[in-house]
Design a protein around this nucleic acid. Structure first.
Lengths: 134, 134
DNA sequence: ACCTTACGATTACGTTTGTAATCTGAACGG
DNA sequence: CCGTTCAGATTACAAACGTAATCGTAAGGT
């Protein structure tokens, strides 16, 4: 029953979420709570998965403390225990840490160079910079 | 030349580099070529590794096509087959793809919010933006 | 009271990763 | 020549991951 968020504990979201697990999280971040079957509806065809796969991933995510469960009759409703916002922030920072020594500017330079920046991105970033200076 | 870089081939750097392997690559990006022992000098104490570990990682990186070897007497000299610049670019783009739907602006917003942006980063980014507009 | 069925739980199994120990063969010291 | 030593190569083995089949059980229909 959920109470336990992980062996070493440390709060929700301490443990790493794998690529496949992320797809499940995304579905639940989009709408939650959902049953396993509903999550499967959302991801199975897209990823070529079968229901057992989704159930395994759900269980692992619960074990990792990334999802909470609430019994609903005889099945479970799954809900994220960590906000997508937080997850994404942590992962972004991890990348900047790992690859750019914690400096964001070189990352930006790379994205610029590889044309991963659309015109919209650029003006949006300018806007954010303006705002930060206030 | 460059002939066979791996079973499925696809050019150097096609296969994913793991976290531990990355430490080895970093050492070789810093200075190369190096022998296994030299790489160990560079990373073993830092990561708490022993020489066999480094050798395993080197072998796996060679198998993945990320490193080239040149015999030097009875040992090997290892050299990166992919530039750090390229690796970092690919990984950055992958993150933006996976977490931000390919848009860089939200990533930037996250970094800004989490104070992962130093004053230096900000002015550097402004400079880059200026340059892009030309 | 059954039988089916729809759940979660348990088990499975190959691959990748982290972290090594051991084996094998060649070079070097004597 | 012969043993020690130092390479790379082979083997090891547990944890995490990707992907699932099977088991057990409780709910619902009849």
């Amino acid at each position: 029953m959920a109470a336990n968020v992980g062996p070493g504990s440390g709060g929700a979201g301490t443990e790493r979420i794998s690529e496949a697990e992320l797809a499940v999280m995304e579905a639940l971040w989009l709408t939650s709570p959902q049953t396993a079957a509903e999550v499967c509806d959302a991801v199975c065809t897209q990823r070529g998965w079968s229901i057992p796969t989704v159930k395994t991933l759900l269980s692992r995510l619960v074990a990792k403390g990334a999802l909470a469960t609430k019994p609903d009759g005889r099945r479970f409703l799954y809900t994220p225990r960590i906000a997508r916002h937080d997850y994404v922030g942590t992962e972004s920072k991890r990348l900047v840490e790992r690859l750019f020594g914690g400096r964001a500017a070189p990352l930006f330079a790379h994205l610029a160079e590889s044309e991963a920046l659309t015109a919209d991105d650029i003006s949006e970033i300018e806007r954010l910079l303006q705002e930060m200076k206030k």
